[in-house]
Write a protein that binds this DNA or RNA. Structure first.
Length: 402
DNA sequence: CATTGAATAT
DNA sequence: CATATTCAAT
């Protein structure tokens, strides 16, 4: 293909000045794009139309300037949160763990480095999306540019082109494309809101939906957390035997968390039951309605009565739904609360358990911060506060015992 | 260290 | 402007 691509005149033999170019005769058949440099003091690469075309081709081949590779598919809420709470994992590890965990269900394989990079960079945002549940339930997609300088360079196959050339050009290219897009989108329709769940500051639009999803997240997450906590407690206990009283406080905290968790679980189960019961109830009502309608429809005169009955039922149903809404939910602390307390506990006792895990477990701007970012009092009872206070004590104690 | 994207610099 | 270089992040 590009076998006959001439490399740049790098050697000292400066036989050419002015512009070094490869194609003078207007259209030449060999599609080999030679690099054209501008003159002396700073030979700059000139992006000729041809070269640019080649560039555009490559980018298009890679899916477009801002094409992103959707990978990872569904990432389990559980795995994501779990790895997020593991201080010994760095971001890449975290992501890979989460991905591995969910890959088993998917059969997706991930190898691209650029993808990996961006995906990892996406992790904090994914976390936010999770805790700010304005996204589609349990499916997460990590996004990564496919057309990166490196891939473009490989695709173009033009010798002498460097990453820096591509990088710069790509930056401009992306910007240009984006402005185009912006214009068309601006002029097109303003009505699409759901699509843009833009960067970190995703403010939940529908609080009702958010609440529902948060509960959903609880349902998903709690059992998992429970299992994890139990195992963790085991190891903690065994360590307590070895290390004596120092760990007992941490153990107490741990058990406390666990106890609370079980409470949550119970509440959750009750909620589940009630939801099921409710749905059955509604179903029966609907059936009755249908029957009533049929009966009365048979006797043509009874139509009005049927309608009345139906609307009556409708009112009843809607009332029931409203009644369903506020109940119990205030008792369920948000997921972020739970995660926060758990994370506090972990970060307080883990350094003691692991020795030093290579410095700070969480990057300062990283997920830990994000987890805490959500306003605490979402479900107002400051129930967790005393617990956290005690955790603070433990932390202090740990850090003081050297 | 390699690579990237954003922000500057020329 | 168009390209290069630097900066920060991972």
């Amino acid at each position: 293909m590009y076998s006959s691509i001439h490399s740049l005149a790098m050697d000292g033999s400066v036989g050419v000045h002015g512009e070094f170019r490869g194609s003078m005769d207007g259209t030449h058949l060999t599609g080999d794009p030679c690099l054209v440099l501008s003159t002396d003091p700073k030979p700059r690469l000139r992006w000729t139309a041809e070269l640019h075309d080649r560039f555009v081709d490559a980018v298009a081949q890679l899916g477009g300037p801002d094409s992103v590779l959707e990978i990872g598919g569904p990432i389990n809420l559980s795995s994501l949160l779990f790895v997020n709470n593991c201080p010994s994992l760095n971001n890449s590890r975290k992501y890979m763990c989460a991905l591995e965990a969910s890959q088993s269900a998917l059969g997706v394989s991930v190898s691209s480095e650029s993808f990996r990079r961006s995906a990892v960079a996406e992790l904090p945002r994914l976390m936010v999306l999770h805790l700010e549940p304005s996204f589609e339930a349990k499916t997460l997609h990590a996004l990564a540019y496919e057309a990166t300088p490196k891939t473009i360079m490989r695709t173009m196959g033009v010798k002498g082109l460097t990453l820096y050339h591509l990088k710069s050009h790509l930056q401009k290219y992306r910007l240009g494309k984006q402005s185009c897009k912006d214009l068309t989108e601006n002029s097109k329709d303003v009505s699409c809101i759901a699509e843009s769940q833009d960067t970190g500051s995703s403010t939940s639009t529908s609080s009702k939906l958010a609440q529902d999803l948060n509960e959903y997240a609880n349902v998903l997450f709690l059992p998992f957390l429970s299992t994890y906590l139990e195992e963790d407690t085991k190891t903690l206990k065994s360590e307590a035997n070895c290390r004596g009283y120092q760990v007992t406080e941490a153990l107490r905290v741990q058990m406390e968390v666990q106890r609370r968790l079980h409470e949550q679980l119970e509440v959750q189960q009750r909620l589940q039951l009630r939801i099921e019961a409710q749905s059955k109830y509604l179903q029966s009502i609907l059936e009755k309605a249908c029957n009533a309608l049929n009966d009365h429809a048979a006797a043509t005169s009874g139509l009005e009565a049927a309608r009345d009955k139906l609307s009556e039922l409708a009112i009843k149903v809607s009332n029931d739904c409203n009644g369903l809404d506020p109940f119990d939910t205030p008792k369920i602390p948000s997921l972020s609360e739970l995660a926060t307390s758990l994370e506090n506990r972990i970060s307080s006792d883990l350094p003691a358990r692991f020795g030093n895990c290579n410095g700070s477990p969480f990057s300062p701007t990283g997920e830990a911060a994000i987890l805490k970012k959500r306003p605490r009092p979402l479900f107002g009872n400051g129930d967790l506060v005393p617990l956290e206070g005690r955790i603070g004590q433990v932390e202090w104690m740990m850090s003081n015992m050297g």
